[in-house]
């Protein structure tokens, strides 16, 4: 291979590594949102869950010395925010989009407020699994440093797809999401199902936040999330409410986020504004490309009906 090929190989490896590193928060938030939306409710507040989760996870890891307790705490704060969302939304004439936006602002503000003493201290982080210790290529070694949370997320996607398709609970969520009348006819507690789905979705988004603060990029700061939570909500539409597609979409967005820095570091110095904007441009393109009737046909019925 000549030098040029090696450079391009390195960009490819960096994008691959970025896909798992940058993409994991997207994955957890989009799986959480997918679960919530399947039950017929949209929770736009997951950005708030993500940031609250990042802050709480970091704080608990610092206080207890156990990053895994931090991950759990992050999920728990997400669960609580999900509970508040569900509780408010089941009141008459309450709009779930508006509640979501309010909770997003609340979660972000609360995390900034409570996170003040957490900016300076260094908390124990989650360890990585080194899959490429056989290789002496540093780029490949760093790309194949996989965090266990990514593995959990990647397994969760097919598990969730199977859950929707093959279990009684999955059927209940889908029914509630498709039609209130059908759910009532089946004797399902609509608000109960939606409450559980929103809380579980909130939990996942919180775990996504813990990945940000406890693994990559690591640390707590107020600029930690640059809208990943919001973009992940858009991803669900692009993924047509399919958990496995959520996984692909998250990897794609993670890789796109890694493209700008990777190209510049091998000396492709022009067009970096464009490459840095790649994930956002990609969101727009995908939204336009997928906003067809085909997408709408996959949309949970109660969401499509409004």
């Amino acid at each position: 291979m000549n030098a040029d090929d090696i450079q391009w190989l390195n960009v490819f490896i960096a994008v691959l590594g970025g896909a798992t590193r940058v993409g994991t928060p997207f994955l957890f938030v989009s799986l959480g949102e997918c679960l919530t939306e399947k039950s017929g409710r949209i929770n736009l507040g997951l950005e708030g869950n993500l940031i609250m989760g990042a802050m709480a996870g970091y704080g608990i890891s610092w206080l207890t010395g156990s990053p895994w307790l931090g991950v759990f705490a992050a999920g728990a704060t997400g669960l609580v925010l999900g509970f508040i969302h569900a509780l408010l939304c089941q009141q008459p004439r309450v709009n779930d989009i508006a509640v979501g936006i309010a909770l997003m602002i609340l979660g972000t503000g609360l995390a900034f407020f409570l996170g003040k003493p957490l900016i300076q201290p260094s908390a124990p982080k989650l360890a990585a699994v080194h899959l490429a210790s056989w290789s002496d290529n540093p780029a490949l070694r760093s790309a194949l440093e996989i965090n266990i949370l990514f593995v959990v997320g990647a397994l969760l996607a097919p598990a969730m797809a199977w859950f929707f398709k093959n279990t009684r609970w999955g059927l209940a969520i889908r029914t509630v999401g498709e039609s209130d009348d059908a759910a009532r006819a089946m004797g399902l507690d609509i608000n109960g199902v939606r409450m559980l789905a929103t809380m579980a979705g909130g939990f996942l988004a919180g775990v996504g936040g813990a990945f940000l603060s406890l693994y990559y990029p690591g640390g707590w700061s107020e600029g930690l999330s640059s809208g990943q939570g919001l973009m992940a909500v858009a991803l669900v539409i692009f993924a047509r409410w399919d958990p496995i597609r959520c996984l692909y979409a998250s990897l794609l967005f993670g890789g796109a986020g890694a493209l700008g820095p990777a190209l510049q570091s091998v000396g492709v110095t022009s067009g970096y504004y464009l490459f840095n904007a790649a994930p956002y441009a990609l969101t727009l393109v995908l939204m336009i490309a997928t906003s067809s009737t085909k997408v709408r046909s996959r949309m949970p019925g109660t969401l499509a009906a409004r």
Binding site: G17, G18, S221, S226
Partner: peptide, 17 residues
């Protein structure tokens, strides 16, 4: 202030030696 991009940039540069 974009911590994810800064970390990505740092890793890519370090990969380049």
């Amino acid at each position: 202030s974009n911590p994810v991009k800064e970390a990505e940039a740092a890793n890519s540069l370090i990969d380049q030696g």
